[in-house]
Simulated scan of single mutants.
Amino acid sequence: MSEGNAGDTERADEAVEDSSTRRKPVVVVVEPETPGNVGTIARAMKNFGLHDLKLVDPPELDEDGEAYGFAGHAREDVLPNADEVTFEEVVENYHTVGTTAITGEDDRSHERWPFKTPVELRESLATVDAPTAIVFGREGRGLNNEELSRLDEVCSIPAADDYPVLNLGQAATVLLYELRDLTVEETQLPDTAVTRAPEADVERLHDLFGDFLESTGQREHRREKNALLLRRLLGRAHPTEREVHSLLGTVRKATTKLEHADYLAAKHDEPAYPRE
Results as ranks from 00 to 15, higher is better:
D191M: 12
Y273A: 10
L208V: 10
K267D: 04
E220Y: 00
R196P: 13
R219Q: 10
K257D: 14
G249E: 05
L234H: 02
D191H: 03
A265G: 15
H260E: 13
H238I: 03
L233S: 15
T256V: 15
E214S: 12
Y273P: 09
A254S: 13
L264N: 05
E203N: 11
H221Q: 07
E241G: 14
T256F: 13
V244C: 12
Y273Q: 08
R223L: 07
H268W: 09
L229P: 00
R219M: 13
G210T: 11
K225T: 06
R232P: 09
L234G: 07
T250E: 03
F209A: 06
H268R: 13
V244H: 14
T216D: 02
Y263W: 05
Y273W: 14
A272S: 07
H260L: 14
N226L: 15
A265H: 09
H238P: 01
P271L: 14
K225N: 04
Y273I: 10
H238A: 12
L229R: 01
G235P: 04
L233C: 10
F212K: 01
T255C: 06
T240M: 04
A261M: 11
L247H: 00
H268N: 08
V251H: 03
L234D: 10
R252F: 08
A237I: 00
T192D: 06
R242A: 12
D191A: 14
A265C: 04
K257I: 03
A272D: 05
D262G: 11
K253F: 07
R219S: 14
R231V: 04
P239W: 04
R231C: 07
F209L: 07
